[in-house]
């Protein structure tokens, strides 16, 4: 199995289904129209992720990790740079003068819930496609470096780890914020996803 064998179009569609669900939940939650779209998707070995992200992210990162278990297992992370995360929290809550430009306790909670909605929606889309139940751990929000984030990824089902890396864009009434969705999986999970995608295409 190589990353070239992964059907990018089918994978993009799967992410789009997940993000569409997430956007609907977030719109419902905040009372404002929110669109989350997916401008770009990569599949790369975990050791290439640093090089892929280093030019795209600056300084400290705000991340929300959620480990998932089931027929596919791995670690899903919403990755935003610090400023984007502070801005997203402010746009989502629409009124906070106090949290402007910084991530306080309330902003951390908001980002954890937003991350939870996004990650759960995308992982559920994978679960639905594979027709298996996927359970999720409690999400944890962290402020960390890119290196720290990559070191903390939890994938324990294989030696070869791959990352599905998706650029995301949150579009709200008052502005846009860009971020990344990173799903680290082992080889068996990636094979399962690839086979299921192929079967879906052929169906």
């Amino acid at each position: 199995m190589t990353r070239e064998e992964v059907d990018h179009d089918a994978l993009t569609e799967l992410f789009n289904i997940g993000l569409h669900r997430a956007a609907a939940s977030l719109s419902d939650l905040t009372g404002q129209r929110i669109i989350v779209d997916l401008p770009r998707l990569w599949v790369c070995p975990i050791e290439e992720t640093h090089a892929a992200l280093i030019d795209l992210m600056e300084g400290d990162l705000a991340t929300v990790h959620q480990i998932f278990r089931g027929s596919v297992t791995g670690d899903a992370v919403l990755v935003l740079d610090y400023e984007a995360a502070a801005r997203l929290a402010r746009l989502m809550t629409d009124d906070s003068v106090a949290t402007q430009g910084r991530i306080d306790q309330s902003a951390r909670e908001v980002l954890t819930e937003v991350g939870n909605v996004i990650l759960s929606s995308c992982l559920s889309a994978f679960g639905d496609m594979l027709q298996v139940a996927v359970t999720f751990s409690v999400p944890r929000m962290r402020l960390e470096s890119l290196e720290g984030m990559l070191r903390s990824l939890k994938v324990d089902d294989a030696e070869l780890h791959h990352v599905l890396l998706a650029a995301t864009r949150f579009r709200l009434t008052e502005g846009e914020v860009g971020g990344y969705l990173l799903i680290a999986v082992g080889m068996p999970s990636l094979s399962l996803i690839t086979k299921a995608l192929a079967a879906r295409e052929n169906a």
Binding site: V110, E113, N116, A133
Partner: peptide, 12 residues
């Protein structure tokens, strides 16, 4: 019950 964890932020 379906296996999903939900976080509730006070702000929402």
């Amino acid at each position: 019950l379906a296996g999903a964890t939900t976080v509730w932020a006070h702000r929402f």
